[in-house]
């Protein structure tokens, strides 16, 4: 049971990173400016690198011989365990930056607490990720301030992004049954414990950005049990296309 729960909790974490990394990679070639066109794939590569490490560890712990590619390319929509926030579509630049800001603020707090995990791979991932997340927070945070306190249009779009993404915040802080077991056994940190600090961080930047902090709303959840928005299916169709059409293809 312990191993199965740990493997599943690692998959949740890995799926968060892969799906958000893929969403960002969709921006490659479409960013508003060339400078940002390099910045977003940089962020994406950080996340995809971390996903690979976590999938490999999940495969080891699970002990069924599944590789990182099998996890990424050969699972169906209902088998993905990512939270709903990371699969939200790239509606506009404000959405992309706000999604990144929410996620990286959560993950920095998460990895800081994961530094004393009983699992060496988790500790290693934590050590590397903290610096990556600090940069993701800085990059997206600086944009939130400039969009919120920018032109009329940028402020309107930033406020729309806040309104739309507010339903997906709570799910970050809700541990699945597997994550709960991993917390109790000292393998992964407690997701609930991040909330207060996360709120303070976001509120501080929102004040600078002249944005209203989102009011508590009924949370949309389901990602951790494989119940996703339709948009994840479209993402997977593109991401998995090659392996589905040419099974086992290598290059």
């Amino acid at each position: 049971m312990g191993c199965a729960a740990f493997a599943r909790a690692l998959l949740e974490l890995a799926d968060d990173h892969l799906i958000l990394g893929h969403r960002l990679s969709e921006c490659c070639g479409h960013a508003p400016i060339l400078e940002e066109d390099l910045a977003m794939p940089n962020l994406a590569l950080d996340l995809i690198g971390r996903a690979r490490e976590l999938y490999s560890r999940a495969g080891e712990v699970e002990g069924l011989g599944r590789s990182e590619d099998e996890f990424a390319y050969l699972r169906s929509e209902r088998e993905f365990l990512n939270c709903l926030l990371v699969e939200r579509p790239n509606r506009d630049f404000a959405h992309i930056m706000l999604r990144q800001f929410y996620f990286s603020n959560f993950m920095e707090l998460y990895w800081l607490r994961a530094a004393d995990s009983r699992d060496a791979t988790v500790r290693g991932a934590a050590a590397k990720s903290v610096n990556e997340m600090k940069y993701h927070i800085r990059h997206s945070g600086e944009w939130i301030v400039r969009l919120g306190d920018g032109t009329g249009e940028s402020a309107r779009r930033a406020a729309e992004a806040v309104g739309e993404l507010q339903f997906y915040i709570d799910e970050l802080f809700i541990p699945s049954a597997s994550a709960e077991i991993c917390f109790e056994t000292g393998l992964l940190p407690d997701r609930r414990s991040m909330r207060e600090e996360w709120d303070q961080r976001v509120e501080r930047v929102f004040t600078m950005a002249k944005l209203d902090f989102p009011e508590p709303v009924p949370a949309l959840t389901g990602g951790r049990t494989g119940r996703h928005d339709e948009c994840l299916g479209h993402l997977l169709a593109e991401m998995q296309h090659l392996q589905r059409v040419y099974p086992g293809a290598e290059w």
Partner: peptide
């Protein structure tokens, strides 16, 4: 060289464009 709105964004863009 690069385009950026201010010093902080210029430093970030430089980091992403020239020190990858």
């Amino acid at each position: 060289s690069l385009h950026a709105g201010d010093e902080e964004l210029a430093l970030q863009a430089a980091r992403d464009v020239y020190t990858r």
